[in-house]
Each structure stands twice: as C-alpha cells, then as structure tokens.
Write a protein that binds this DNA or RNA. Structure first.
Lengths: 334, 334
DNA sequence: GACAAGTAGTGGACCGGTCCAAAGAAGGGC
DNA sequence: GCCCTTCTTTGGACCGGTCCACTACTTGTC
C-alpha cells in the first residue's frame, strides 16, 4: 500500500520508466498514443513524483528556503506573497523556516534548509549568524530582505528605502504646518537610517532645533512610555513620528491617556503600514514599505543569480509611499 | 566545488561509508578512535547529510507538513509554536505551506507537501478540498487544527472548545449584571457553535428574550456595520459579544463613533486573544483559545499515529480561558 | 587448541527518480 | 530492396544516503 512509483506507472502503461519520465517532463519526442497511455496510468494510480528522488538525481531542488526571524511580523506575509508570485511563475517552490521557533536548539536555524539542499536562500529581517551566512553564500545565492545591516560578500540586499520613507513623513508633517516634531527612534540599521533621515530633513527645513528624538525599543510599551516622556516636556511637540506602527500604537494610547485627541491635539505617524494601521479603530497615517515589491525584487535577485549572474552583492531599495489616514492633521494654531 | 558526500568523509577518515553512516546515527558498535576520525573529517569538510538521499533510503522524511490557509491569522503562530515544540523534541521537522499563496494555481495546495512525502499533515483552519484530504489520510496521518467542520474518516481534529468559550463570555457578562446582550455572529462551524452556546447560556439564565443575534462576515468592517445596526435599535444592548477579535475591533469603532464610551456605556468581548486584543490601545476582554495547547495536542495526535495508534478520527477539545481586560464592566444602572 | 559467541567493519543492493548512449522503428532516396 | 536519417523507445549508470548479510578479528570456555 505504498505510493506508486514511476515503475508502477510504466508497467501499467506498458512502456519503460524512461518514457514515463519523458512524458512527465513534457518532451515532444513521444508518440501521442503512448503519451495518453502514460497520462492515463498516472491518473488512475494517483501517481505523484517523489521530490526527494527527483532532486537527488537532478542535483537541484527547485526550491528556495525562506528564513524568517519571527512569523509574527505582519509585513512578512506581503513580502512572502511578492516573493512567491515570482518564484512560482518560474517553477520554484518556497520552504519556510522560522528562526525563532528553532532557536531554542542553539543550532544554525538555516540547517534544515541546507540539509534539504535548497537552491537559494532568502533571509527575512535580522540575520542570524553573519559568518555562517557567508559560508552558505559560497554555495548558493543568498538574499537578505528587509534588513539593512552589513552582509557578507556576495549576498544581495533588498529593502525599502528607509531614508526616503522618513523623509516622506517629515515633509508631510512639515507641510501640514508642524514645526516641533518628535521622533520615537528605534535601534539597528533600520532605526538609525530612519532617525538620521528624519533629522536631515528637519535640518533642511531649518527645523533642526525643533526636532526631538527619543529612543525606544520598538514595542508598543516602549512607544507608550517614550510618548509619555515626550508629552510631558515643557515644549510639547505637535506631531510624533514613530519608528514603526507598533510604537505608534503605543503613542496613540499615551496621547489618549493624557486627554489629547488625535489628530486634533497631536499628529501621529507610523511606519510599515501593517494591518493594524489599517484598522478603522486605529486608522494610522504610516509609510507603506511596499513589502510586496520587496519580495518581488528579492525573487528577481535570486532568479538572476540562478541564471548565472555573478558579481558582488548589491543593495536594491524599493521606494516606499506615504499612506495618509486619520492620525495626522494641521496643528492647532495658537 | 560540490557539497561533500558521505564518501568524501569516509575517504578522509580512512573508513568505509557504512562506518560513517553508523557513527552519524550514533551507533555504539564503533571503536572510539574511528569515531573520532569520522567526526573530525565531518567537521573539517563541513559535511551535512543530504536530506533527499536520506529520506529516499529511509522511506520517511521525519517531517510533517503544515498547511495554513492564511499566514495572516495571528493565532496560527502560537499554534505553530506549540506544534513545533513537541515535534522538535521528537526529532521531527515542520514544513510550512500557505494555501492562499498557492491557491492561484488552482492545484491541490497540499501537493508540494505530498511530493516531499511528509510523514504527516496538519491542516490549520478551514480545510481545502475534503475529498482530497480523505485520500491523503489513507496514506499518512492527518490532523485538522482549529476548524470544527466535519472531516473525512480517520482524520483527527484538535480545536478549542468553542461552546465552553462562548459560555464563559455569556456568564462573565451576565455575572457583571448585563441582561440585554448582543452577539455578532460568524459563519461556519465555529461561528455556529459559538452562537448556539451563547443562546443556550442565555436561555439557561432565563434571558432568552434578551439575547440579540446579528450575523456578520467576521471582518472588522462587518463587526462595525453590525454594531451600528445593533446600537440603533430601540432597546440598545449593554454588551456585545463578537465572534472574534477582529469583529470586536469593528464594534469598538462603531461604539466610539456613536459617542459611547467603552466599557462605561457598552461592554465588548472578542474571541481568540490575538495580539491586537493585547494592545493597550485596544485592551479587549476576549477568550484565549489556548492555541499553543491546541498545537501541542495536534502534535501529540500525530506522534500517537506514528506510533501505530489506529482507530477512527477523534475530536480533541482544549478548554479555553477568559482573558478579562478593559472592555467589559458592570452596566450603567438606570 | 578447537569452537562458540560476540564485536567491528565492509561491500553492495536498494530507495525513485533523471538522463545518456544506444537500440529499434519508420520513412526517404535511389 | 538497401542504406541513411530521423524519430521513438529503452536499459542501465548514477545521485547520496541506509541497512542487511557477511567477513575478520577478539575473547571466552572447556
């Protein structure tokens, strides 16, 4: 009662297994009647090729591994969608692995993917061990999506343009008439890029002295606490730009708790355009990091490398867009 | 420059590949010096066993496939965590596939998993084609997690006890003093179970006539519209029990828009205890469906079946708990 | 010292595919 | 009718592991 093999199909169709293989791989060197006999046998037996046997023989798996550092990050899903659409069109499959789930073992989270001999690897978000990644990159194409940290040589990077995103936010708020604008900053390369670009844009508009930057841990709780701190300053800001949506949600609660109305008394902007920002209960102005497009470009990178494209790793930045919703407005004058 | 094989290791260590295989699988029938020689060669070459070759020969993959219908559902992640913890302890791996991502092709979403010859299958949420699932279940153990629809014979079901969850909510609200309680109902088996149990509990407390049930599509927008309808009735309910957190969020916006304060003027309860309900900006009283536990039990089911447990499919229900937060309170008297 | 009972290590069949070299069949030209 | 091409089809080596049957070497026993 084991799954049928290619030999079972061959016997049933009265041909050799080589011919079955030819038919299944779409050769046009097969007489129609034989082809039909094979296809009928396949159907009748419910035959499915064994992927292990195939990849062992072909020495490729037509599969790319995707290493996520935390499935909870909502923007991953759009990214995966973009990634998958392009891969799928090229006959490739995706294999997902969650680094967080496997972390407890202390092993290389990409280990299982490598054992499966994926043809390429997409690392989403913060990378695990950079040294290990460099070793992997010597064997198969590796793309880092959504992180801006330095990567080992030969590794491509695809992300949204954080500097442009932060600039869009600052200019939006300045354009609305805000002058004293606070930034709830984050950590890591992404946090730094957004903060620097925010500061640079404020400076360009002669508002260097009006820019207030407070660090946070990029969580809701952190956004809350930072905002409480910001709003209890003598010169209260009229707008807050949070490093991400989650921290922005914390900012909303803090403002609410202090009796401020959004956006009348305080404008709040997030980053990432997560599904939470889209809730009408939240309706947060935020930066869309075009994660779908990031996914597509990551796939493009891999496909190019499969085609033999050599060269050092490149950094591809997708332009983000500003999603204006209900949490920003002109400041109260006076 | 291809990855080293077991033969490369054997040559380097000066032994046969059979011995390398023995060492790697932890046999104690090997002399220590040979074992060390093999392990050293493995380390020096950076050898990793080829999973395809191994599973082809062993005729098992030590891998279970997980078919998700939408990665965006936040409760999946906790479920996966519970699932993975138990599987991992038993030397099994998880392979994730998103039915929604592969749906465009119109093929069986479990196809790639079957080609990879997973040893077992976990279907999370709404099942795809029940007939196809039945065919799969004849070959490998199949568990449905988080859905309550009827399943083909031989398939196990693990879910939270929706009837008990709805009862907890109704009793909590009744205990607070609410009498006129509305339910934003959902569809499918889960929606029906929750609604029926809500109605039954109301009846048991002599409140059959105070129970108001309105259907919804289980989205935020649906929850919003349904709540607007509910709150514009002559006899306005003092509490709303939504079929899930998302619809509850919609209810919150509707109440807010109509100038009602939560929980002073209206109590709202959700279901699922998603991360959104935990946001302090939302702080929703909700039912925790113990998805981590559901995942663990699903893994337990599979492991038992691997051990050879026969018998028809069983339904395992995990007891949910009520997570009381800030969206429920005693009703205003008078 | 012969024989039994381990212990340690090896060769090779096998898993289920792909693909190449070569065989067989069919058609064309003379 | 024969030889040459071209089109179909086939057997079998191979991918990288596992595992069984078997050999070679110890050790123990009487």
């Amino acid at each position: 009662m084991r799954p049928p093999t290619i030999r079972d199909v061959a016997d049933r169709a009265g041909v050799s297994k080589s011919l079955v293989s030819l038919v299944l791989r779409g050769s046009d060197q097969v007489r129609p009647e034989k082809r039909d006999a094979v296809l009928r046998a396949v159907r009748e037996l419910g035959y499915r090729p064994n992927a292990a046997a195939r990849s062992l023989s072909e020495r490729r798996t037509r599969t790319v591994g995707v290493l996520l550092n935390d499935l909870r990050n909502p923007w991953f899903v759009d990214m995966l969608d973009g990634l998958n659409s392009l891969l799928h069109d090229n006959g490739l499959h995706m294999l997902l692995a969650d680094a967080r789930l496997n972390r407890r073992t202390g092993q290389d989270p990409a280990g299982p993917l490598l054992d499966l001999r994926v043809d390429g690897l997409v690392v989403v978000g913060t990378l695990p061990d950079p040294a290990a990644l460099g070793a992997v990159a010597e064997r198969i194409p590796v793309v880092v999506a959504g992180a801006r940290e330095p990567v080992p040589p030969g590794v491509d990077v695809v992300a949204n343009d954080d500097e442009q995103g932060a600039r869009l936010v600052a200019e939006h708020l300045i354009g609305l008439g805000h002058r004293r604008i606070a930034h709830i900053a984050g950590y890591g390369a992404v946090g730094e890029l957004r903060r620097r670009s925010f500061e640079a844009t404020m400076r360009e508009h002669g508002l260097a002295d009006e820019a207030v930057v407070e660090p946070s841990d990029m969580t809701e709780e952190g956004g809350y606490r930072t905002t409480v701190r910001l709003l209890s300053r003598a010169e209260r800001p009229t707008a807050v730009f949070a490093v991400n949506d989650i921290a922005a949600i914390g900012a909303l609660s803090a403002a609410e708790e202090l009796g401020l109305r959004i956006p009348r008394d305080l404008s709040v902007v997030g980053y990432d355009n997560t599904s939470i920002a889209r809730l009408r209960h939240v309706w947060l102005t935020t930066v869309d990091n075009t994660s779908h497009e990031v996914g597509r470009r990551a796939a493009r990178c891999l496909l190019d490398r499969f085609e033999g494209a050599a060269g050092p790793g490149e950094v591809h930045l997708a332009p983000p867009t500003l999603e204006i919703r209900g949490s920003t407005a002109r400041p109260l004058t006076g």
